[in-house]
Amino acid sequence: MTTVTGGCTFTLSQLETLEAESVHIFREVAGEFERPVILFSGGKDSIVMLHLAMKAFRPAPVPFPLLHVDTGHNFPEVIEYRDRTVARHDLRLHVAHVQDFIDDGRLRERPDGTRNPLQTVPLLDAIESNRFDAVFGGGRRDEEKARAKERVFSLRDAFGTWDPRRQRPELWSLYNGRHAPGEHVRVFPLSNWTELDVWQYIERESIELPGIYYAHRRDVFARNGMWLTAGDWGGPKDHETVQRRLIRYRTVGDMSCTGAVDSHAATIADVITEIAASRLTERGATRADDKMSEAAMEDRKREGYF
């Protein structure tokens, strides 16, 4: 992007342009909404999103709390990173536990053990009970075809559902945050970023990530063409053999549906080289919950999921 200031012309790099857009989105939400919240799981996209929020309001603290929908089947390294980050930056964290909803009967365990599809009800409950009117998510359009149709400001009705016919045009980066009582808006500051952009920004900003994003040895087993982590969530079964392999994770979610990839990428530079050569998105390659049906993500978005 080329900008003229005081008669001088200068050009922003791709990362500088994306960063400026995201910072603008955070500030726009701060000016339009009363009770925004940032979804923060300890995954790379939410980490970059939080980093951008801190840049947007520095030297003041981030004016929004964080929200994590905890499935109970998360990677321990990611939960440790989440809690350490919250303590380091003196942030406010709301945690909605899927287990609480299972215990009181509002949700029922799935036969396959995965809890990612169970996150919708706790998420909507947390939004309603805390009266959040804007919810930041780290979704990107390059991840999955249902997310490719998403606006930066995504209107959700009083039931948290997404209707593509009610989405508004965003010409010239003008965002319309108007919503009726009970409705809220999902906001995606990383919409126009790619996985490669995210990693190049992590390198540029020297952002710390949980170690599972880099090559390490872990006990895994094969299921549906993916390497899954052994755990008490329901794997492995009797016929599934545990192997110790050198792997890393491209995306992080519930252990029961997030697959690892064989990798020797031990540094950020290694990961960038690996991603640049990949022909599969991280969700397409490693997320079992997206493979339940051709329209799995779209169906969950309509129910209120991100």
Rank of each mutant, 00 (worst) to 15 (best):
T267V: 01
K145H: 13
R168C: 12
R106E: 11
V261R: 06
H68L: 02
K149D: 05
N192Y: 09
Y201I: 04
V187R: 07
F188Q: 06
W199S: 08
N224T: 01
V95M: 04
R92W: 07
R300K: 05
S278R: 12
L66A: 11
W227G: 00
A53K: 13
E77Q: 15
F101K: 02
T114H: 00
T194D: 15
E208P: 08
D262H: 04
I102A: 04
A288P: 00
L118W: 03
A87C: 07
E298L: 02
G31Q: 11
G304F: 01
R131K: 15
F64I: 10
R92Y: 04
K237M: 09
I272F: 12
D289T: 11
L93K: 15
V29W: 08
K55H: 06
E203V: 05
R217P: 00
E240T: 02
E303R: 14
G138I: 12
S293H: 03
R250N: 13
S22G: 05
F188D: 00
D103W: 06
V252Y: 05
Q243L: 14
D100A: 03
T3E: 08
E170A: 03
D103A: 14
F159Y: 10
F221P: 14
R287Q: 14
T251G: 14
S129N: 12
R151H: 07
R151A: 12
G160R: 07
R166N: 15
A276K: 14
R283D: 05
F101M: 11
S263G: 09
P164G: 09
N224I: 00
T161H: 04
G259L: 07
A230G: 14
Q167L: 09
G7D: 04
H68G: 00
S46G: 06
R165V: 09
I25T: 08
P59N: 08
V252S: 15
L12N: 13
R287E: 04
A285F: 00
S278Y: 10
Y214W: 11
P59E: 03
L118G: 03
S173P: 00
V252K: 10
T229G: 05
T273D: 11
A158F: 09
T9V: 06
L66E: 15
N74T: 10
R140I: 04
P36G: 05
V23G: 08
R35W: 00
V271P: 04
E183Q: 10
D103Y: 05
E282P: 13
S206W: 12
S13N: 08
K55L: 06
I207E: 04
S278C: 06
M226N: 09
F75C: 00
H24R: 10
L15R: 12
S13D: 15
P65E: 04
K44T: 00
V271S: 08
A53S: 08
M226C: 08
R27P: 09
D90G: 07
I275T: 11
L196G: 01
V271E: 01
R245V: 13
H89D: 11
E80S: 10
V220G: 00
G43I: 01
S256N: 01
V242K: 05
S22D: 04
G6M: 09
V62P: 00
H68I: 00
L118A: 03
V95S: 09
T241A: 13
V37F: 05
G43F: 14
S173E: 10
S191F: 12
L39W: 09
G211A: 14
L228P: 14
